[in-house]
Design a protein around this nucleic acid. Sequence first.
RNA 1: CGGGGCGUAGCGCAGCCUGGUAGCGCACUUGGUUCGGGACCAAGGAGUCGCAGGUUCAAAUCCUGUCGCCCCGACCA
Length: 514
Amino acid sequence: MSQQGKPQTAITPTRADNYQDWYQEVIKAADLAENSDVRGCMVIKPWGYALWENIQRVLDGMFKETGHVNAYFPLFIPVSFLEKEAAHVEGFAKECAVVTHHRLELRDGKLVPTGELEEPLVVRPTSETIIGASFAKWVQSYRDLPLLINQWANVVRWEMRTRLFLRTAEFLWQEGHTAHATQQQAVDETMKMLGVYAEFAENYMAMPVIQGEKTAGERFPGAVSTYCIEAMMQDRKALQAGTSHFLGQNFAKASGIQFTDENNQLSHAWTTSWGVSTRLVGGMIMSHADDDGMICPPRLAPQHAVILPVAQKPEDRARVLEYCRALQKELKAQWFAGAPVRVELDDRDLGGGVKSWQWIKKGVPLRLEIGPRDIDKDSIFMGRRDKGPKEKTSIARGELVSTIATLLQSIQDGLYQRALAFRTEHTREINTKDDFYAFFADPPKKKPNDPTPIHAGFALAHFNGDPALEAKIKDDLKVTVRCIPLDAKLGGGPGTCPFTGEPSKQRVVWAKSY
RNA sequence: CGGGGCGUAGCGCAGCCUGGUAGCGCACUUGGUUCGGGACCAAGGAGUCGCAGGUUCAAAUCCUGUCGCCCCGACCA
């Protein structure tokens, strides 16, 4: 305890003191990413990129398992393509990077663009239109359907305000694009992929999510309906962690994706698109990290365990290192969640405490400290990242090796349960307008420049579905409908809209959001 | 794009109001002590004070402009 009576933490400020700054400090302390020299763009550093690679690896497997194949489409989209779908234009036109020239010339020591393009190219903000153009060529007959394609790519959206992982001008994502012969098949695909995202979020990221449909105001530009998974972050704001869109025939009509059906009738295909991005890394940070830094959910952790040799006397060093290497080899031969256990041996010549804290901040699930005394007992001094930094226990080597998968899974489960309990604690059914406004009232700021204080959480309230009402509430409170939950337990059946007294089909999730 | 804050050593900051030639903590290097831990002592290295102009004998400090970052708004995955 410090003089102020607060426990010393590796991250300052703490979540309670200043959530926004805390978030940035965690990213810095865990060495996940940094701002680049290019405004709004981030450099994803190896530890952060490894998280993304694990996300990619698992999701890619799930996509393949559900019959999808990967392909790659151009980064550049002719402006005329984007113009094809009216709502789409409106949604993305304001945030596009546009390529207008194809050459640079040296004039007075400065490189200036020359060679203007006949038609400007947009750096893809999303790929519906360019992929649609390909689909139009690939689809002739109902026998060509369904077409189930995914692409891993970068996209650019020229954002006003950026935040590492959560909103950057360029980001990495995957976008699935599918075409189907019938509306029902496309709707089924939309829901199936929403389910895949929810399963991934909960089982791999240990991040509980609410599956639901977006209201008209929050819908993807050009979609008939948009579904999403929404998670609660530790500041009780909602994070849209993944989206799945039923596009109807809108894009098929815009791109001319037509096929001849069994009855020799020409019709437009029904399409879907769905995506998750590097935003998920931000979601993991804000779901699990604490005042000592990152906490990686074991299933996606770049390393499951780190071995920290404790050999302070030079004469012990060789013996300790040898023991550590043998243990590393033995642990790597174990399996966890369908892959070999990932173990790093950190034999850098650094002070023991400093080294240990680096790994705490990076969020590695297990720290294994091994010194001469442990070797004599054939045991390991183990720290779990989901417990306090000082809360370390001794475990027999054999037991560690045989139970490491169980240990990692128990950390994984613990993180999920903790996040779920947090969400439950801060989710409330609300039945009157007054209660609703009171629930979301901002605590007073101490200084004008203070970050927005942490607000109440999720409200489950009835809603008559009027977009104007939703806009008014957004205006008043900065609160929006995050989704119309699919889960009947959350929806709770018909009721009365507390704002209008009109009938409401079910409760919806209201919250402030990222 | 509007309002506010901040750019000083690798990192975190003080100094600025009241101009006088740059300092603290951590990190780094070396030597010693310590040895189940974010150690201690000593010595040392490291900064065109974001950038560009201006005022002045003299600018980190005052003035103007500019760039970047952060927070709050508008917009968004």
